[in-house]
Every structure is written in C-alpha cells, then in structure tokens.
C-alpha cells in the first residue's frame, strides 16, 4: 500500500539533516524512489534515517561498507543517487 500524504511528509522531514551532502542525496532518492518505497525497502530506508549524519555519509560516499545485508539494497540506491 502506498504511503499517505502525511506519512510521506514525515519521511521527507526526516530527510532534513545537519549535513547538506546527505540532504541532497536523500532528496534525490525520494524523487526517484518514493513511489516504490514500501515493505522491506521502506523499513531499510527508515533504519538508515536513524543513523547519525556522519555514519550515513560514510555509507553513502562509500567510505564505509554496510555490514547489514538488510540495508545493502537501499545503500546501493543512495550511492547511485
């Protein structure tokens, strides 16, 4: 089931970060993949949003590899955004 407007707004607001680099990537991710965000992919995305800005940017920029296989797909999508 697709997210409601309110749920989408909440998710968008969680993409407001302290680090501009992350915000720009997350903005593009939502632009490209919002429609297909559900189930495990949505859960993985939410988990990544709970990471600190520093951890998130390390993953997105490829400075660090993702140890959690459940997050691998979304990390890869973020890297390609």
């Amino acid at each position: 089931m697709n997210m409601t407007n309110v749920e989408m707004n909440r998710l968008r607001w969680s993409c407001r970060r302290g680090l501009l680099e992350n915000e720009l990537v997350l903005e593009r991710f939502l632009h490209a993949h919002a429609a297909s965000l559900e189930g495990e992919r949505l859960a993985a995305f939410r988990t990544l949003l709970d990471y600190s800005d520093d951890e998130l940017w390390s993953l997105v920029s490829g400075r660090r590899e993702c140890g959690d296989p459940a997050l691998g797909e979304v990390v890869e999508l973020l890297r390609n955004c």
């Binding site: 970060r17 302290g18 680090l19 501009l20 800005d53």
Partner: peptide, 12 residues
C-alpha cells in the same frame, strides 16, 4: 527544535 537535536547543523 525543527529536527532531532543531533541533526542540527553543528554536525557539519
């Protein structure tokens, strides 16, 4: 705070 405290711009 508009965002969670540890997401403030000081992190940059």
């Amino acid at each position: 705070s508009k965002v969670f405290p540890t997401r403030s711009h000081t992190v940059a």
